[in-house]
Each structure stands twice: as C-alpha cells, then as structure tokens.
C-alpha cells in the first residue's frame, strides 16, 4: 500500500473540525494520525468491489412517528445555555 504522508494537512483538517491545536502539539498529533491512517490504509490491500447500495446497520425500514405536536419545558434547556441575552442565545459573529 502506498503510504499516505505528505497529503495530510493537519491545519486544514483541524480547521474543518474546528479544533484549535497549539504549535507545540502540532508535530506530535501529525505523527500520531499519520501512523494511524497508514494502519487504517491496510484495508485497501483487500480487493473487493465497492457497492454503493448503502449499508445500514439497522435492517429496519420505514420507521416513523405520527404528526402529533408535544411541548417541552424550554426553560430547562435555556438553563444550560452559557451565553444568553434575554431569551436569545448569544453567539460570536460569523466571518
């Protein structure tokens, strides 16, 4: 199996995953994930046709609920919100 090495851009992945990684951890984490990815890559030794007919863990189909509304005590949820203004959640601006 061809090793996956240079193509790993940890900064880009961390940005996609929204995880801040300190400069000092960067090297160590890159090394760890490279080792793991190349271990995972072992599965590509196995030559099998890839079926796109999707596998689902559950053998069930057509499970649904009726369209009946129900209320929930919203304040119990708001109690957990770290930053609020009135009943609004406060978020830093996007961009």
């Amino acid at each position: 199996m061809k090793r996956i090495d240079k193509e790993i851009d940890l900064e880009k992945l961390a940005r996609l995953a929204r995880i801040q990684i300190s400069k000092k951890d960067k090297k160590r984490i890159t090394k760890d994930i490279l080792e793991i990815i190349n271990y995972f890559n072992k599965i590509n030794e196995l030559k099998i046709g890839l079926s796109y007919k999707f596998f689902h863990q559950s053998a069930l189909e057509n499970v649904w609920r009726e369209d009946i509304p129900k209320n929930f005590e919203a304040n119990a949820i708001l109690d957990q919100v770290p930053n609020k203004k009135g009943r609004y959640l406060r978020s830093p601006k996007i961009g």
């Binding site: 929204r18 949820i77 957990q80 919100v81 770290p82 930053n83 959640l89 601006k93 996007i94 961009g95």
Partner: peptide
Amino acid sequence: DGLRYGLKLKEGMENFS
C-alpha cells in the same frame, strides 16, 4: 461548540469559528 450547553470561555467572543 459552547453555544447551547457546555463549556464557556470569557474571551474570543468576536468570531464564531
């Protein structure tokens, strides 16, 4: 992501990402 529950930070509120 610290908006609806969980950890809260004092600084860094100027940008969502």
